[in-house]
Every structure is written in C-alpha cells, then in structure tokens.
Design a protein around this nucleic acid. Structure first.
Lengths: 152, 152
DNA sequence: GCTTTGACTTCAAGTACTTGAAGTTCCTAC
DNA sequence: GTAGGAACTTCAAGTACTTGAAGTCAAAGC
C-alpha cells in the first residue's frame, strides 16, 4: 500500500482486530523477531502501527494461517521481505485470505448451531423431556459429522 | 450408540482419522484425564478403541473446536457421566461457549470487511484508478474507528 | 520359526502462544 | 488540572499440544 505520507496510526487492539492476530501474538512476534520493532508513541511505550505495518501483519497472518513455523516466518522477514509488492500478487494473496475467512465464518456458524443444540438438549433434560432430548442428541450427531467434513 | 455387544475395535491411528484429533492429542487427553484410560490389547500396550470411545471422542472434538479449555472439557465429560443432575452446570459451560462464538463471529465479519477493502484497493490500483485507490486507503481507518464506536 | 518393517509405547523436551501480575499511560469527565 | 478507569506495558509462568528419542509389539514375507 504505502502512500508514504500516511499520518494514520493504529493501536495494538485495532491492529489485532483488523489482522486477526491477538494482541498478545503481535507482541510475541515482535519479541522473537518475526516483525521489526514497532515505533512507540512520543511520550509513551505504546506501540503505534501504521498502514504499512498493518499490510505486513496481514501478510504474516496469511503465512501463519497456512501453518508456517515462526522460525520460517522470521527467515522470510529477515531477508527483507515485507510481503508482495505487485498488485497482482497482493490480489492473489488477499483472495486466498478472503476464502479462508469465508470458511472460518462458516465454521463458526456451524459451531454456534452445535452449541445451540447441545444447550437445547440440556434444557430438555433439565425439564425431564426425554423424548426431545433424544431427538436433539441425534441432531447433534449429524452436525458433528458436518463439522468434521468442513475441517478437511 | 452402544449395543454393548460391539466386537469391533480401532487402533489409535484409526481413532485419529475418524475423530479428526491427532494421535498425540488422544494420548494427551488421556494422560490429563479428559477421557478415561483406554483399554489395552491382551498382550500389548496398544490402545484399543471401541465404538463408544469413538462416540465420546467425536463429541469431545466438537467441544475442542468451539475453543473450550481442556479443564472445562474435563468437567463437562465428568458431568456427562453424572447424567441429568448435571444439567445446570452443562448449561453454564455451554452458555460461555455460545458467547465466545458470538464474539468470534463478529470478529471474523470485521476482518472480512478489512480484506474486502484491501482487495478493492489493489483492484483499483491495478486498473490505474488512483482516485478510487486513495479513497479506499482511508477506509481502513474508518473501520478501526467503527470498532471503537460499537463498544459504547 | 525368524526376521524385518512399521506402528505402537512412554517420557522428556520443544513450540507457539496465552494469561496473570504489577506497574505505566492515555482519555474522559468533572 | 486532576481523578478514575480503560488500555497499554513488561516479564514470568502457564497451557495445549507436538516432536524426538529410545524402546516394544505385530503382521508379512522368507
């Protein structure tokens, strides 16, 4: 991205929300040298991320999502790599990430349904409605299969 | 479930394939008491899983997928053994999971929007539409600001 | 029966974070 | 401008697995 003249900065929490990497992970990656030290506020110790940092973090998040070991990420970044520079490469990277997020959203929705059913099951059990409880435990099984399928 | 007369047994590798939990994780869960010790072969130390074990593991895999802590899984499984009397405790554990998943869904949605903006930016850049690209480069900051507003 | 190959075993150490404590710093509100 | 709370900081310890080493067991081929 890098307009160079960007004056916008982001807190660690914002960087976390946009990239999907927990704040604790951002600090961790910095501490072990996966990313360069982030500049701090004028009179504080608080990290201030700019657009370029966010771009790099999004790239790192993609690498992490593919299961790359941190030692390998470190090597990549140490070799001066800050992510793809060409538009076409960025588009390719981000398109894959978009697909990953779509799958993740689907998975979360499915897990929500699973927990919902289990909750209903225990509510029915609590109320002594054995018939409904049995029906629900069957549904949970079907869903468990679905959950397993998507994972692959 | 559980005819009681089941003859068929499974190796740890088969159990792993069927439940989606790595063999190392199956041993780990057993070692820390998330699941009861699995019976071993007549003249060996090899674990032999039966259908009931697989049912339990499948459903533990679902709990793990929702991000439940192993200490809570242990409680949950122990409660399950206790039957209907544990209903209120199970409901409590699952309600926490439900809330966690609702937050996660929101977070994924935000990240999807962020990636969408980045993708649009690069498409505009590739097409030489500098005006649109510049407009979009400010959008990320708007998204981060929105994050703060939502909380209040 | 014997041997080899490969899957299994335990246990210790490693990995990638995550959480908690204790102490700053920023922001909002009076 | 100052009081209070939320958000940040570091650092140490904890968590949830995973991997590797060294040894045991089982099915297949000779």
């Amino acid at each position: 991205m890098s307009t160079g003249t960007t004056q916008h900065t982001y807190t660690i929490k914002e960087a976390s929300a946009l990239t999907g990497l927990p704040a604790s992970t951002l600090r961790y990656y910095e501490s072990i040298g996966v990313i360069a030290p982030i500049p701090r506020g004028a009179s504080s110790k608080h990290r201030m991320y700019d657009e370029d940092d966010l771009d790099q973090l999004l790239w790192i998040a993609c690498l992490a999502a593919t299961g790359m070991a941190v030692s390998d990420m470190r090597k990549y970044v140490a070799n001066g790599q800050r992510g793809p520079s060409a538009a076409s490469e960025q588009i390719e990277l981000l398109t894959v990430q978009q697909q990953r997020l779509a799958i993740e959203a689907e998975q979360v929705a499915l897990r929500q349904r699973y927990v919902r059913i289990k909750l209903d099951f225990w509510h029915a059990t609590e109320a002594g409605d054995t018939e409904r409880a049995e029906l629900l435990s069957g549904e949970a099984r079907v869903l468990a299969d679905e959950l397993k399928q998507i994972k692959k």
